[in-house]
């Protein structure tokens, strides 16, 4: 079986891609992609770390079930905000949405 460090590596690479997307992209939907990728990186990390103990810790899987559910909610709320913003401003480029900035 693959050593756990390979899974961690995939997780970190996903995190890196997510951070890269967050910094360089300005489309709200694309930023949501990046956030979801970071979520997945974290989930993978948790599941892999849960296997570090013998016997494995089942808490890791429970936690990931929760985070997946949470991510789905976050996506639902985030996407409805995006729809609303696009209707109000005809624009979802975050760098141009500065109405809330004081």
């Amino acid at each position: 079986m693959e050593p756990l460090s390979s899974f961690f590596a995939v997780s970190v690479i996903l995190l890196g891609i997510g951070i890269y997307g967050l910094t360089t992209k300005r489309n709200a939907i694309r930023i949501l992609f990046s956030v979801e990728l970071i979520y997945n990186a974290a989930n993978l990390n948790i599941i892999a770390f849960a296997r570090l103990r013998s016997p494995p810790l089942v808490t890791g899987q429970v936690l990931v079930l929760f985070t997946i559910a949470l991510a789905a909610m976050e996506a639902a709320v985030g996407l409805s905000i995006i729809i609303l913003v696009s209707r109000l401003n005809a624009e979802i480029d975050l760098s141009k949405l500065s109405k809330l900035k004081g």
Binding site: I19, L22, T23, T24, R26, I31, L94, S95, S98, L100, K101
Partner: peptide
Amino acid sequence: GVTEQYVIAFA
């Protein structure tokens, strides 16, 4: 208020 700067700080 620019998101990417926050993300860079976080990274």
